[in-house]
């Protein structure tokens, strides 16, 4: 933990305006923001730790618990909503045995909803580990999650 964090911090100057970019880099490294890391960031940029925590909790991007191996982000944009996103969320959590958003016990999957990812023409869509899957229905969701990867092209 210590070494990774120091490597990240060494690329910054310790200015207040670097809080968000630093948090983004730390989350990239750990998949979430460990409490210790936020304390160290606060020391690095000379602000109270509560300030860093306040900033981190404001932005939807940041997480405070580790995620599963695969992250399923379900788009909650308007186009997706009117074309059935609620059913996609329902099916995803049902297949993975989750009660709403969260991480499966075996730490394989984390399900979350995200603001519009801008693929409205492919609504409803989800991203799995940053790969977009569009034109979904309940059946396609089951296939996707069973394989843990993209469906065949064509």
């Amino acid at each position: 933990m210590e070494e990774t964090l120091q490597t990240i911090l060494s690329k910054f100057d310790g200015k207040q305006e670097e809080i968000i970019p630093i948090l983004q880099k730390v989350q990239d490294a750990y998949t979430y923001l460990p409490e210790e890391s936020m304390e160290q960031i606060a020391r690095f940029i000379h602000v109270p730790a509560s300030r860093v925590f306040g900033v981190a909790t404001f932005y939807a991007q940041f997480r405070f618990t580790p995620t599963g191996k695969n992250i399923v982000s379900i788009c909650r944009g308007t186009a997706c909503h009117v074309r059935g996103a609620p059913a996609i969320l329902e099916e995803t959590t049902a297949v993975l045995g989750l009660d709403g958003e969260g991480t499966t016990e075996d730490m394989e999957y984390t399900v979350e909803t995200v603001a519009c990812i801008g693929c409205c023409a492919l609504a409803p869509c989800v991203t799995i580990n940053e790969e977009v899957h569009g034109n979904l229905n309940k059946k396609k969701v089951r296939t996707l999650l069973a394989k843990g990867s993209k469906p065949d092209d064509g």
């Binding site: 936020m38 304390e39 509560s50 925590f53 306040g54 909790t57 404001f58 939807a60």
Partner: peptide, 14 residues
């Protein structure tokens, strides 16, 4: 500090 956002905002500590 203010923690979280919107309706869920609370006053809290680190």
């Amino acid at each position: 500090a203010f923690i979280d956002r919107g309706f869920d905002t609370v006053i809290g500590t680190f």
